[in-house]
């Protein structure tokens, strides 16, 4: 459904050149729910905007829904439903009006668009709001309207850019089941971005983790979790360099990162493996000041994969 090779985009601002996306290879099969996961500024939105024909790539090629991105943008648009990160509704328009106009722009008749709008409103908790002026909706209601607008024409490919921002837990769960329904009942393919690991985990068949415009890891949630799960053991040491050299080759240490005045080591079971690691350091003559075992949080997952914290 999507094949991208070497997709790249550079922005030139007055003061700097930003390489937002740097050579992305992406394959998405029909009927998959795929997530782009990454911290702020990773290039998720830029990637989606390129694939949605809104932004011309500075390099690379892509085929989306069977149409070449550069040669047949209208072909891509016809089959795509796109919900942008910031949404896009006119605060002076009414909910129904916006949905029906959107449907008409995709070639539906006003009557068909109205029927679809009603059904979508019902399943996205927007029923009875059809006559409401959009400016008077709550933030979460407006977000659900954004999503409905991307779905009125029943696209076979859907891009959702952080669909659940601003939604309460109930609406989020409801949105997830709606997205699953799109795939299970309508056979749609979905590419969504998020920086919530739980969302990616609950929803996606496959995840691409991107950072600084490149894919740093990809796989099913289970595969990724296996890679990034485990416990984190932090040692405070006097000689970080030597300690790193010692532990890097240790069979039980999966990942070694230098942190302030110490080392962070990923292992399968922290309680059982911390002591053997400490002994190894001791044998090599490294003094260990303290030891701390932690079970990874979402933030640690990012730290391990991207070297950056999700909390900035």
């Amino acid at each position: 459904m999507i094949t991208a090779r070497g997709l790249a985009r550079t922005f030139k601002t007055r003061t700097a050149t930003v390489e937002a996306v740097r050579g992305l290879d992406l394959d998405v099969a029909a009927g998959e729910i795929v997530g782009l996961l990454g911290p702020n500024g990773a290039g998720k939105t830029t990637t989606q905007r390129m694939l949605a024909t809104l932004l011309a790539p500075t390099a690379g090629t892509a085929t989306v829904a069977g149409c070449d991105l550069r040669a047949d943008p209208v072909g891509v648009r016809r089959q795509l439903g796109y919900v942008s990160q910031a949404g896009g509704t006119n605060p002076g328009a009414k909910v129904d009006e916006e949905l029906i106009t959107q449907g008409q722009l995709y070639g539906l008749t006003a009557a068909t668009a109205a029927t679809r709008a009603r059904a979508l409103c019902a399943s996205l908790d927007l029923a009875d709001l059809g006559d409401r002026i959009i400016g008077k909706l709550s933030g979460g209601q407006r977000r659900r309207l954004d999503i409905a607008l991307g779905l009125v024409h029943q696209p076979k490919l859907v891009f959702l850019d952080e669909p659940s921002t601003g939604l309460d837990p109930h609406s989020r769960a409801n949105l997830w089941s709606h997205i699953r329904g799109l795939r299970d009942q309508a056979g749609a393919t979905i590419l969504l971005t998020t920086h919530y690991l739980d969302e990616a985990d609950a929803l996606c068949d496959r995840i691409f983790i991107i950072d600084h415009g490149v894919i740093v890891a990809s796989g099913t949630p289970a595969e990724l979790k296996r890679r990034i799960s485990g416990d984190l053991v932090t040692f405070e040491v006097d000689d970080v360099e030597r300690a790193t050299a010692v532990l890097r080759d240790h069979p039980e240490a999966r990942d070694v990162t230098a942190v302030e005045r110490g080392l962070r080591v990923t292992v399968d079971r922290g309680e059982a493996q911390a002591l053997p690691l400490m002994r190894a350091l001791d044998d090599a003559g490294v003094k260990v000041g303290s030891l701390h075992i932690a079970h990874p949080s979402l933030d640690d997952v990012f730290l391990t994969l991207t070297g950056r914290s999700l909390r900035e």
Binding site: A52, T53, Y82, S84, G88
Partner: peptide
């Protein structure tokens, strides 16, 4: 105003 609201971008992704 429409650019700011994002409605222009939304319509630009349609085949219109």
């Amino acid at each position: 105003a429409e650019v700011r609201w994002g409605t222009i971008e939304r319509m630009r992704v349609t085949p219109a």
